[in-house]
Structures are given as structure tokens and as C-alpha cells.
Design a protein around this nucleic acid. Structure first.
Length: 867
DNA sequence: TCTTCCCGCCACAAG
DNA sequence: CTTGTGGCGGGAAGA
């Protein structure tokens, strides 16, 4: 209403002045109910919500109003027509500093925003009905404006594992402007991140980015606290009695379960002053604390799953003053959703549903690392630790084919029933996480898919792809992961050890162990890890049992493994250092299924290409990388956790099995700006002549690929292995292999080229590299998306010859060599943020922030660790 | 209808 | 007083 009024006013009042005012206000409110026709065409709107329905109100005015030419507008102000622009203006007015900064910055990278489509649309001088319709379609949905998505964007801006030397400061204003949202939303994100020590407040409006380095220790601390608080008992108790007691005596459970923990300081680990401070007002309810508690619940939970109601109750309970339970509960739940969104973006949890007699209940399952509690040093983040597993346990390839409607099922034939598992290794699943129980690491494709899907949807209009996960069997056959097929078996099997799993298990969610076990036991992959679809909110791609796993730890973590079964060069060259990229050299299998896939995919892919040039970019991958790799190279020992090198669980075994046949094969194509932040993973698993530099065969080829939001690759360690047979010295030096290999993929677009940049490669050196530095690599790869888009000039597809360095990121000045990486890694990886950088400095910073901030900010978790 | 959760008002804290 | 934070809950999109 208000908005409308404002706009109406400006419609009737002197245009200029009034309009400006109105617009600014709108900007503040984050709503862009500005007549699009009056918007400066050139300003990318980004993801800002444009409520077209409301805009229609102005339709009458639309035409009458003479659209101002871009040039004219520019004179006025830097296009106050977009929310972000407006915000900027507002901010600028208030803050000279920001103003300067902003001036230097270009508007926004279209890549980061799904606004590209808007931009294009806005190009129209006159918005016709058709255009309106288009807008209508592109109008950001509630989902697109979700905190989760926003968080992803936020995270995409920073490296998950920043180098110690790198110090990133986050300006809330900038971020808000950049992401096109109001600051309030950023607070929500930052608060949660802060609770996990991913960031810390440095000063007013300023936060320091730490990354995930200390996440393990933080989680460990939280877990400990959770145990101290006896959350586990509470959870159990609630889960048990909740049903019966809830109705009758609502207070009952509380007494029983909560062992007067409510009186305990919520965060013991927080600063002492925290308690003493009389500031136990609203701040005590800080989202941060809630977030920490929420995480604690997961950490202490055996099932690693927590239902919202239970979490809410526990939280309510602790916040004593609870007069009105119902309202309280509702509010709490809302807050929990906020937190959950952020945690989900961090790939720490994922949404699931628990089905009880009472019906379905929303819940979240922890999918983040769980073994950080192990004595001694912390384990590396899942991202890194899972890799070895993947290699060992996985075979085949997973591919995500560009698809417009990810959600659709069965678009691809389910054929190819069972596939043999190539693995020859021991039959014993030597999963290090075994003892973790079902709560152990799991491979989460779902979250990726979700993220991915969102991305897709975001840019859907812009036309990104929507994706579908497709598994490629060793033999090259593909199966649509999303195919709704017989999947009950999967559930039962995988969920055997966990009663809850059945309910929670989602298509994409595969317990690693179960998975590996499955492989071992059956040696076959006939079981489509199918979804218990209903469990998951959004349709997700299914993972086929025995298939390669994709691990998507965080918004940014992503992994692909594949096997080279019959492929010509299975585990041949295991030189480690090979950096030459031959990935492409391998012919891609184009199974029948794939063909089908191709059919479907094609239309979509082409569609985009129609108008925007950005599309071109889309089709033309920018950079790329990761080919299949040698078995030994990435064996667990190396990928395993760096901190504890090979000491990981069962190295030997891993190697054996891996050597055999599984080789991760993929091609990572950094997304160009036009890709809307998507990166493409091409499967190079099977020999594919087509990929050859000049192979025409590629043409219509449906290259198995995975399109991911760049941000998704963030923390993900980039693997690289020389495709080209030919041992390469594992010399630390700059990647030996020659310059960029240029591949042209017909289907990708005429001018498209895949560049393989040696520089981007992190080659694993067999034993030397040992604890490979997934992190390190991750650090680098991490930057890929953000960095590339941000600081590096975006490489246009047009300039294929330009070597794109994937790994080489701005943050790492030095060439990324295994050695270099390794060197830094051990020391930095598991350290807390503070230690990572200048410890003292960090500390100072911290203390400073603490001193300068309110009490609530002091709830720092001793991120460091050894207790 | 129920679940999610965006949005932004407004209180409180900091400067 | 102004600006920064962020609690809170209405209400609407989405399922």
C-alpha cells in the first residue's frame, strides 16, 4: 500500500523531484516498484525484486511518460533507477567513504546477479506488454529473494579458505548495495556467520572475513558446549514425549528435559563480560546465540537431525521469559528458518522432513563435518576429507546436464539398469567415517542441486540452465538422476542403520558409507539412490547408487568423481604432476541416454543464446580445468586430510582401490560473466575424441556436464590431473605443461573454447604432496568464481586464446604449485582464523571488536582450539 | 490450510 | 541526535 501510494504520488506530482524521492524510498525498502519504463536501461537490476504486478498500476502512465534516454539519466545521478543504485545513492549521501568506493566500483557484475535478464529487458525504451510479460516471468520469486540465496551470494564474494595473508574486510554497506538488499538482511547473514566464526565484527559496519578455517574447531567447541548443556538429552526427551505431553501439559517436558540448563549461561565460551554485562536485554536473544545453539543441537544429536519444533522449544525454554508460548514459538521458528537458511548455504545442514505419526515435520539434517571433535587436531573440513572417499568409493560419473527444469522428473530415460561397479579394491568399505555412523559424512548432491537449482531459477529467465543430475555409468550409460524410479530399495538399504534415515534420506543424500558399502556388496549399481523425494523440499537430482558422488559441502563446495572404466586410459598415467591438460582429449561418451539428454538440453541451451550476448558467454566456457586424474595422485592420502596427512583412516586401501579404475574426470569450465555465475563441469571421464582440440565430433555432442553456480565451487578443492598421458614431473614449479589447451566445443558455441590452463592446475604429487592441500587448492579454486569475476577481467569467450587460470588466483600471488600449497597448508588450514593470519593482529582485532562492540558481540567461541 | 520466511517497523545501542 | 543493530511479528508467497 505504502509503496503504491508513493508511486502514485509521484505519478501525479512533478515528475523529477518527486520521483526521485519516491524511488529512494523504495530503494530503501528494497522494493523496486518503480516504473520500469522509467528506469535507466543500462542499470542492471540485479536480483532485486521487481513487483510487476504492482507496476501494472502504472501502466497507463508508462507510455505517456517519455522515457528518458540513458544519456540523460546519467547526467542526473548514477542511475537511481535500480534498487542497488538507489541504495548506493543513499549510502553515498551518508557516507563519503562509501561514495568514493562506490564510484570506483562498477555497478554490479551481472554475473552475480540474475539481473542480466532484466538488464536486457530494460534495454527496451518502451516496455511493451510482451516485455511486461517477460518481467512477469522474471520477477523474482520469494525464493529468489530468500535469505539462503542471498547468503550464497554473500559467501560467493569471499574465499572459503582465505590465505592467511589475505585479509578481507566486509563492509556491510557495500555488501548490501552490491547484493541489492537492505542492510537488515545482511545482518541476519552476518550474525549467523559470526556465530560460527566465519566472520567477526571489526568495527562499526565492518566485519572481517575469516573463512572456514576455524570451522572445525568452532564446531567442536559448540559440540562440547552442546554436550554440556545436555542438549542431546533434551532433544531425545522432547522427541519422545513431545507428542503426548505437548498437548496436555505443555510445560512438562521442559522440567524434565531441561536440566536446569536454562539457568546456565547460554554460551559459556562467550566472553566473561558477556554474562556480567547487564545487557541481557534483547541482545541476549541474539541471533548469534540462537544460531550457535541450533548448531549445537545438531552436533550433539545422534541422528544429526533436528526438527524445527524441537529446536524452537529448546530455544524458547532457554530464553525463560516465555509468557506466550505460542507466539514465542512462532517467532522462534521464524528465526530458526533464517538461521537454517544461512547454515544451509554453508552446506552445514539441509532441509528434510521427518515423518511421524503426527505427520511431516520440518527438520534439518546436519551434513557438515562431524568428526571435528576427534581428539587432537581438527579434521579438515568435510570438503577436503571427503575427497578421498569419493575417489575410493565412487565410480562412474555424475553429470549434470543443463536442463531447464531441474525439477522435472524422468526427462531422461531410466534405462541402464545396473551397472557394474568398477571398483576392484577391497570389498571393505574402508571409510574413515565409518565410525561416524549414519551421522557421518554424507554426500550431498541435494544441496548442490538446490543451490544450483536456485541459481538456475534465478537466471532462468536469464536462461541459465536448470540442471539435472545425470549419472554416467562406467560404461557410459547415463541415467537421469531425477528419474522417478524404483528407489525404495535405496532407502531401505542406506537407511538401514539409521531409522531416521529413511525419512530423511533424500535422493541426493547418500550416506557415504552406505554408499561405499553398497558398492562393495553389490558390485553393482542398480540401485538408484532415489529419492525419497517427498522428504526433500525441492526436487533434486537423484544419485544413482554406485555412481560417482558429488559432494557439495557448501555453497561452494563441490566435487565430482568419475571412473574410467573401459575407457582407454583408466588409471594409466599416474604421474602425478602432469599438468598438461588432456582431459579434453578423452572422448566423451555419448550414450543413447545422453543423446536423449541432449535433445532435451539443447533447446534450453539454445534458447538463451538467442538474445543476450551474455548467453554467448554462457555457451562459451571460459576457463576450465580438471580432467580426469590419476588414481594415485589423488588418493586419499593426498586428498585426505592435510593436517593429518595419510594418517587418515586407511590409506593403503584407498590407493589400491583407486588405482584400479576410478579416476575423477571432469572438466571445469569457469563461467564467464555471461554464465550468470555458473560453472560448467564437463565430464571427461570417457575417452572422447570429440574433446580433442579439433575434434568435430563434439558437435552435437551432449557433453555431459555439470553446470554449477560458480559460487558453488568456492571452497571446493580443485582437482587437476593431466589428462595427457605423460608423466609430468611433480616438480613444484609452475605448472609445466604447456599453455592453455584450446578445445573447441561445437555445441558450446562457435567461438567457444575450453581453455585448460596449467596454471590453474594443482597437480598432485603422489606421495610428496601427500596431504594434498585440498584446502589450499580450495582456496584457490575458491576464488575462482568470485575472483575471476571480480578482480580478474572477465575473460570473454571471444578471446579463447587467453589462458584462464583457474587456480591461480589473486589471492595467491605465488604460483600454485603443490609445494607451495603444501607449505602453507599445514600451518594454516586448521588454524583458527586468528592464527591463520597474523595471530596477534587477529587477536587484536578480535579484542578490539569486542571492546568496541556490544556485549552480545562478545559471545565468541573459543575458536582456537586445543582445550 | 499450513509452512516458510520476506519485509521493514521500531526499540535499543553506539557514536 | 544520528546511525548502526537487530528483535520481532505481520502477512503474503508457496506448497
Amino acid at each position: 500500500m505504502e509503496v503504491n501510494c508513493l508511486t502514485l504520488k509521484d505519478l501525479t506530482s512533478p515528475r523529477q523531484p518527486r520521483l526521485d524521492f519516491a524511488i529512494e524510498e523504495n530503494a530503501q525498502k528494497e522494493n523496486i516498484f518503480v516504473d520500469l519504463s522509467r528506469m535507466a536501461p543500462k542499470t542492471p537490476i540485479k536480483n532485486e525484486p521487481i513487483d510487476l504486478s504492482k507496476q501494472k498500476i502504472f501502466s497507463p502512465e508508462r507510455n505517456p511518460i517519455t522515457p528518458v534516454k540513458p544519456a540523460d539519466r546519467q547526467q542526473q545521478q548514477a542511475e537511481p533507477w535500480t534498487p542497488t543504485a538507489n541504495l548506493k545513492i543513499l549510502i553515498s549521501a551518508a557516507s563519503p567513504d562509501i561514495r568514493d568506493r562506490e564510484k570506483k566500483k562498477e555497478l554490479f557484475r551481472p554475473i552475480e546477479n540474475k539481473g542480466s535478464a532484466y538488464t536486457d529487458s530494460l534495454q527496451l525504451d518502451v516496455v511493451g506488454d510482451s516485455a511486461v510479460d517477460r518481467f512477469e516471468k522474471q520477477r523474482p520469486s520469494r525464493k529468489q529473494k530468500s535469505l539462503g540465496l542471498l547468503c550464497q551470494k554473500f559467501l560467493a564474494r569471499y574465499p572459503s579458505y582465505p590465505l592467511s595473508s589475505e585479509k578481507t574486510t566486509i563492509s556491510l554497506d557495500e555488501v548490501a548495495v552490491s547484493l541489492g538488499v537492505e542492510r537488515r538482511r545482511i545482518y541476519d547473514i552476518v550474525n549467523v556467520l559470526e556465530s560460527l566464526h566465519l566472520v567477526s565484527r571489526v568495527a562499526k559496519n565492518q566485519y572481517g572475513w575469516h573463512g572456514r578455517h576455524s570451522l572445525p574447531s568452532t564446531l567442536r567447541n559448540l559440540q562440547r558446549l552442546g554436550e554440556e548443556h545436555k542438549y542431546e538429552e533434551q532433544i531425545a526427551h522432547l522427541q519422545q514425549k513431545e507428542l503426548d505431553l505437548m498437548e496436555s501439559k505443555s510445560g512438562e517436558w521442559r522440567k524434565d528435559a531441561s536440566v536446569d540448563i536454562q539457568n546456565q549461561p547460554l554460551l559459556d565460551f562467550s566472553e566473561p563480560s558477556y554474562h556480567s554485562s547487564s545487557v541481557n536485554s534483547r541482545k541476549d536473544k541474539s541471533l548469534r546465540i540462537m544460531s550457535q545453539k541450533f548448531v549445537m543441537l545438531f552436533l550433539v544429536s545422534k541422528t544429526k537431525m533436528v526438527t524445527l519444533d524441537v529446536a524452537a522449544k529448546i530455544l524458547i525454554e532457554e530464553s525463560q521469559d516465555t509468557p506466550d508460548q505460542s507466539i514465542k514459538f512462532k517467532t522462534k521458528v521464524r528465526r530458526l528458518y533464517d538461521i537454517a537458511n544461512v547454515l544451509t548455504s554453508l552446506a552445514l545442514i539441509k532441509k528434510v522432513h521427518v515423518t511421524e505419526e503426527r505427520g511431516r515435520k520440518p527438520a534439518f539434517k546436519w551434513i557438515g563435518p562431524v568428526d571435528f571433535s576427534s581428539s587432537g587436531e581438527e579434521r579438515m573440513d568435510v570438503s577436503a576429507s571427503v575427497l578421498p572417499e569419493l575417489k575410493r568409493e565412487t565410480y562412474g560419473q555424475i553429470q549434470v546436464c543443463a536442463k531447464r527444469r531441474l525439477a522435472r522428473h524422468g526427462s531422461i530415460s531410466p534405462a541402464h539398469p545396473s551397472v557394474r561397479v568398477q571398483r576392484k579394491g577391497n570389498s571393505e568399505p574402508s571409510s574413515p567415517y565409518k565410525e561416524q555412523g549414519s551421522g557421518g559424512f554424507s554426500l550431498e548432491i541435494g544441496s548442490l542441486a538446490a543451490v544450483y537449482r536456485q541459481k538456475m531459477e534465478d537466471s532462468a529467465q536469464g536462461k541459465a540452465f536448470a540442471g539435472e543430475l545425470v549419472l554416467q555409468t562406467p560404461s557410459g550409460s547415463l541415467e537421469a538422476a531425477t528419474t522417478p524410479a524404483p528407489s525404495s530399495s535405496a532407502d531401505s538399504e542406506y537407511g538401514a542403520d539409521n531409522p531416521l534415515v529413511h525419512q530423511v534420506f533424500s535422493v541426493a543424500h547418500v550416506d557415504l558409507q552406505a554408499f561405499s558399502a553398497q558398492n562393495n556388496l553389490n558390485g553393482q549399481v542398480g540401485i538408484p539412490l532415489r529419492p525419497v523425494a517427498s522428504e526433500v523440499d525441492c526436487p533434486k537430482p537423484a544419485l544413482l547408487a554406485g555412481q560417482p558422488l558429488v559432494y557439495v559441502p557448501s555453497t561452494s563446495l563441490f566435487m565430482l568423481c568419475g571412473s574410467l572404466p573401459e575407457g582407454p586410459s583408466p588409471g594409466p598415467e599416474r604421474d602425478s604432476g602432469g599438468s598438461g591438460a588432456t582431459v579434453a582429449a578423452e572422448p566423451l561418451p555419448v550414450p543413447s541416454v545422453q543423446k536423449r539428454l541432449r535433445k532435451e538440453r539443447r533447446p534450453r541451451e539454445e534458447e538463451p543464446a538467442t538474445k543476450r550476448q551474455s548467453l554467448d558467454c554462457e555457451d562459451g566456457p571460459l576457463a576450465l580445468v580438471m580432467p580426469k586424474e590419476t588414481a594415485s595422485g589423488f588418493t586419499s592420502s593426498e586428498w585426505g586430510n592435510p593436517s593429518r596427512s595419510t594418517e587418515t583412516e586407511k590409506p593403503s586401501k584407498d590407493k589400491d582401490s583407486t588405482k584400479e579404475s576410478s579416476l575423477p574426470q571432469y572438466l571445469y569450465v569457469q563461467s564467464p560473466a555471461g554464465l550468470n555465475g555458473f560453472s560448467v563441469l564437463l565430464s571427461s571421464g570417457q575417452p572422447s575424441p570429440a574433446l580433442g582440440p579439433s575434434s568435430p565430433q563434439l558437435s552435437p555432442i551432449s557433453v555431459p556436464c555439470m553446470v554449477l553456480p560458480s559460487p558453488t565451487l568456492g571452497p571446493f578443492p580443485v582437482l587437476y590431473s593431466p589428462t595427457v598421458p605423460g608423466p609430468t614431473p611433480s616438480a613444484p614449479g609452475p605448472l609445466p605443461s604447456a599453455g592453455p589447451v584450446n578445445f573447441s566445443l561445437p555445441n558450446l558455441g562457435a567461438a567457444t573454447h575450453l581453455l585448460i590452463s596449467p596454471a590453474a592446475v594443482v597437480k598432485p604429487s603422489p606421495s610428496t604432496l601427500a596431504p594434498a592441500d585440498p584446502q589450499l587448492q580450495a582456496q584457490h579454486s575458491l576464488h575462482l568464481s568470485p575472483v575471476v569475476s571480480r578482480s580478474q577481467k572477465v575473460i570473454q569467450p571471444e578471446s579463447p586464446a587467453q589462458p584462464v587460470s583457474v587456480v591461480k588466483l589473486q589471492q595467491s600471488p605465488a604460483p600454485v604449485t603443490p609445494k607451495g600449497i603444501r607449505r602453507t597448508h599445514p600451518e594454516t588450514f586448521f588454524k583458527t582464523p586468528g592464527s591463520l593470519r597474523d595471530p596477534d593482529l587477529k587477536r587484536r582485532e578480535k579484542s578490539q571488536s569486542r571492546n568496541t562492540t556490544s556485549a552480545q558481540r562478545r559471545l565468541e567461541i573459543p575458536s582456537t582450539g586445543p582445550d
